[in-house]
């Protein structure tokens, strides 16, 4: 099980990456952490003419505060998200999600940008970034543009990136005070891709009234599935009944598929269960102050 031959480039600046992408016209593949790409290369399921290894582009590996938000360079390692204080304080949802990613060996090299650009529908980071309302910066020799995470994922393993574009960074906006979170996942084994993953964020005011709610599901369709639950939750105390109603919407709107690991019916059922549990936890963490 060995890859086909390819040309190898190891740029050290973003500009060089842009130039290489432009000159290969879609035949160049970015190599970041390699945890998804290299298995495909080894199995000869991917046969790019050129590999552009961005691991030495220091300008892509950073984690900056941005007001109350954060900006993550594309090359931010997943493991570093578990070890960073600002991430833990500002985005505990992200920490909870990253704990579900594979194993230490994968997180040590796997990157934020790589996971998003790979766009596996059962991966944790795409779901989380959509839930956090992240904004992805795509850059190329032509310039840079911002893409909201919820518009970034187009289909299974397909994103809004153009062939000459690099996923450069991800900007996480600040969460409102009083926001609770929960990330839940069911998989066959520890560390496997999700059969169903759910990210929930609920914001409550001082009276405990829900002011915002976001629910995003993974593993149940070609892209992270945003479930619109605000109408059911905002403006009231998020009671168990209201949460259950919101969870039912999650079960109703998705179109999951069957595979060797789980039936579509199971995924739909568990999506509802996890949505209810995640919203419940998020509500509790949001602090029902009354």
């Amino acid at each position: 099980m060995k890859p086909v031959a390819f040309d190898y480039y190891r740029p050290t600046s973003v500009e060089e990456v842009h130039a290489l992408l432009a000159s290969h016209g879609g035949g160049g593949k970015i190599l970041a952490g390699g945890q998804s790409l290299v298995p495909l290369l080894n199995m000869r399921l991917a046969r790019p003419a050129a590999i552009i290894d961005i691991n030495r582009v220091a300008a892509l590996e950073y984690l900056h505060a941005n007001g109350d938000g954060l900006v993550l360079g594309a090359l931010t390692r997943q493991q570093s998200l578990l070890e960073n204080r600002a991430v833990a304080e500002r985005y505990p949802l992200l920490v909870e999600a990253v704990r579900y990613i594979g194993h230490r060996q994968i997180r040590n090299w796997g990157t934020v940008g790589g996971s998003l650009a790979h766009a596996d529908p059962a991966a944790e980071l795409p779901v989380t970034m959509v839930a956090l309302d992240a904004e992805i910066t795509a850059s190329s020799a032509r310039g840079a543009r911002a893409i909201p995470a919820r518009e970034f994922f187009l289909d299974t393993l397909t994103t809004a990136l153009e062939p000459d574009e690099l996923l450069a960074s991800v900007r996480l906006p600040a969460l409102s005070p009083g926001t609770g979170w929960s990330f839940l996942e069911v998989s066959r084994r520890h560390g496997d891709f999700a059969l169903v993953a759910v990210a929930a964020l609920v914001t409550r005011d001082e009276a405990g009234v829900c002011t915002d709610a976001r629910l995003v599901l993974g593993g149940v369709g070609p892209v992270p599935q945003v479930v619109e639950v605000r109408d059911l939750l905002i403006g009231q105390q998020p009671t168990p009944d209201a949460i259950a109603a919101a969870a039912d919407v999650a079960g109703a709107v998705i179109e999951p598929a069957s595979d060797v690991h789980a039936t579509a019916e199971y995924r739909r059922h568990v999506a509802r269960v996890l949505a209810r549990r995640a919203l419940t936890t998020a509500v509790e963490r949001a602090g029902g102050r009354r």
């Binding site: 190891r10 190599l31 390699g34 945890q35 590999i51 230490r104 060996q105 090299w109």
Partner: peptide
């Protein structure tokens, strides 16, 4: 698994040229 710069690493998922 080996350690690369102290980090556990699947050596089947890294190319030798990356270890330069």
């Amino acid at each position: 698994t080996v350690l690369v710069d102290g980090k556990s690493t699947r050596s089947c998922l890294m190319f030798a040229v990356q270890a330069d």
